[in-house]
Design a protein around this nucleic acid. Structure first.
Length: 318
DNA sequence: CGTTTTTGACCAGCGC
DNA sequence: GCGCTGGTCAAAAACG
């Protein structure tokens, strides 16, 4: 799901630069050009062609008013964004709940009772270019009696090469394998991992190939990381190119979140370093921030303002 | 030499 | 109590 489709991140800022020199020094212009910003006529960006050097109090007051209004506008937009996010989240919760009711596990011999209120976050990733749809499943906690100790459980689906026999799911964290077992309902072995980045981190991961589609790895995460993501750089440069970032929502309501990541670019390139997506709540925020940043950098008004600000700064220093 | 992986043994929960 | 099964432990091997 592309965040930009939910929320219009175009800030539509009312940029009205005034206090910088109208003529952009060639030096600045060339520097901006070298930074990948196309050369454009700064003159066009001026709304008014007032002389810059007579900064009066009224100018400052006007500027202050403008900034205040802009701030207010941004605050309103933020509240709208939050509102939209909450609405989407509640819709998603409802959807996953309905799915959960439909999908009752056919394997009646499960040792542990299934719990429908548990968290379930599913990501269907791919490393060979085929994006798959996401699905929801239920996962029980180990001991129904220990309801207060329910670990946060999420499931991640990763498409891999069918010939790829490794049970490695790159998710940005560092894992240590501590066991492997062939389970009854699946001829493919299940691998058990512990988070090895922080010794105190309680998160565990189980990885097993799907019974239905052996090219799909099913990674089940238990618990929440109590540390930041280990090293995205390491993951980005590692060999397999399989990379999934776990969606984990740490809010108290433990809202299930459905995230599908396009991992097609990670294979065989180091581009994933720059495209790595964080989908934790802070990660969602980061995605939004990135979207906004993209929106800003592609906005000619913002570019004009940036050029004006930089040139003004340089002139000020001179 | 330190870290990670492998793999058989062991343990605990559950159904009969 | 016994057997089955999933999960974990820990010693040995492999790896960098």
């Amino acid at each position: 799901m592309d965040c930009s489709s939910w929320i219009n991140t175009s800030l539509d800022l009312n940029i009205n630069p005034r206090r910088v020199h109208r003529e952009l020094p060639k030096e600045v212009e060339s520097k901006l050009f070298s930074l990948g910003m196309p050369k454009f006529n700064v003159e066009e960006c001026w709304e008014s062609k007032r002389p810059i050097k007579d900064e009066s109090t009224s100018d400052l007051e006007e500027e202050l008013k403008r900034v205040t209004a802009e701030n207010k506008k941004l605050a309103e937009m933020l509240s709208v964004v939050c509102e939209n996010y909450n609405t989407l989240r509640s819709h998603l919760m409802e959807y996953t709940r309905k799915n959960g009711e439909k999908e009752t596990s056919p394997t009646s011999k499960k040792r542990k009772s299934e719990s429908s209120n548990n968290n379930s976050i599913c990501v269907m990733g791919t490393n060979n270019g085929n994006s798959e749809s996401s699905s929801t499943d239920e996962e029980s906690c180990k001991k129904p009696r220990e309801e207060t100790m329910k670990p946060k459980i999420s499931r991640v689906y990763v498409r891999t090469e069918a010939s790829d026999t490794t049970l490695i799911v790159k998710d940005g964290y560092q894992w240590r394998k501590y066991g492997q077992k062939v389970t009854r309902d699946n001829p493919c072995p299940r691998a058990y991992f512990k988070c090895s980045f922080a010794p105190s981190c309680p998160v565990k991961k189980k990885v097993q190939r799907s019974v239905d589609d052996q090219s799909v790895l099913v990674a089940t995460y238990e618990g929440e990381h109590n540390h930041p993501q280990a090293s995205s750089q390491m993951e980005a440069t590692s060999g397999s190119g399989r990379s999934v970032t776990l969606a984990s929502v740490p809010c108290a309501a433990a809202t299930p979140t459905l995230v599908t990541l396009d991992l097609t670019k990670s294979k065989g390139s180091n581009d994933s370093k720059s495209t790595k997506t964080k989908v934790d709540t802070p990660k969602v925020q980061q995605v939004l921030v990135e979207q906004m940043a993209t929106s800003l950098t592609t906005d000619p008004n913002f570019r004009a303002a940036l050029v004006a600000a930089i040139s003004g700064r340089l002139l000020h220093n001179n």
